[in-house]
């Protein structure tokens, strides 16, 4: 599904990613771990097409198609979803209105008619229940005044609504207490299928107790320095990152 070949990326002339190779198949869960500043969030942003970064070498392919020339919204239409580490506030735009717009814009791009209001409402209710989201929450302004947990839950709610092929969760566990973490992880697990894939970006092993990865990769200084199964996460928890440097 996702194939990253020798990916190099700069921001303001500074190289952050220095040759990443990674392949994720449908139905798999991959975790990328690493110390601060290793390039984890940059990798997520580059896959999503954030234009602050300049790709100098290599490629990102989704289902055999090179994504480099596509704008972020086109990548989204093709099934890339990024759960933000710091979700952005948009005052005056409700959670419902935002997700409705996102879904209908995606449908429009694919040449499908807008989802009828009734079906939209039904879908919203269904997914909100799945993630134990209070209905009142849906009419609040997007991320405005949300607690850390509410923001992350809202990200996963949007993911549930958009049903992406590839979901990248950037530090979704940060700022969550253990109960919120369980709800979010539970949501991700329910949404997982044979047809989609998940890329977890995390600092700590904690999240991986709840979303079990098939593969764990350690990112250091813009490169994947070690890959392994889920047991690698425990090893890191125990030994830290220093032994890999």
């Amino acid at each position: 599904m996702l194939k990253i070949n020798n990916l190099h990326a700069n921001i303001n002339g500074k190289e952050i990613l220095k040759g990443i190779n990674l392949e994720i198949k449908a139905g798999e869960v991959h975790a990328i771990m690493g110390p601060n500043g290793s390039g984890k969030s940059t990798l997520a942003a580059v896959i999503a097409g954030k234009e602050d970064f300049e790709v100098t070498e290599g490629s990102v392919e989704l289902n055999g198609e090179d994504l480099s020339d596509f704008a972020p919204e086109v990548r989204a239409h093709k099934g890339v979803f990024l759960s933000f580490q710091y979700p952005i506030e948009i005052p005056g735009v409700t959670v419902t209105n935002f997700i409705k717009t996102a879904i209908n814009e995606t449908r429009k791009a694919k040449g499908i008619a807008e989802l009828p209001a009734k079906e939209m409402l039904q879908l919203i209710r269904e997914k909100a229940d799945l993630l134990e989201i209070d209905r009142k929450f849906l009419s609040r302004s997007l991320n405005e005044g949300f607690s850390g947990g509410e923001k992350k839950r809202n990200e996963i709610f949007q993911m549930a609504m958009l049903e992406p092929q590839l979901a990248i969760l950037d530090e979704t566990d940060s700022g969550l207490d253990i109960d919120a973490l369980k709800v979010v992880a539970n949501g991700v697990n329910k949404l997982k299928s044979e047809k989609n894939a998940v890329l977890l970006i995390t600092h700590y092993q904690r999240l991986l107790d709840y979303i079990i990865p098939d593969f764990v990769h350690v990112l250091h200084n813009g490169k994947i320095v070690k890959s392994g199964g889920k047991e690698l996460a425990y090893e890191l928890e125990e030994k830290g990152y220093d032994w890999l440097k």
Binding site: A71, E73, A76, I90, V93
Partner: peptide
């Protein structure tokens, strides 16, 4: 804000409309 909207499949033009309408709601 624009990138956040873009990432959800909303193009920049529509995103501005969304943000401005939210602002003037």
């Amino acid at each position: 804000q624009l990138f956040y909207c873009n990432q959800r499949g909303i193009n920049t033009e529509k995103a501005i409309a969304l943000i401005v309408n939210g602002f003037g709601k």
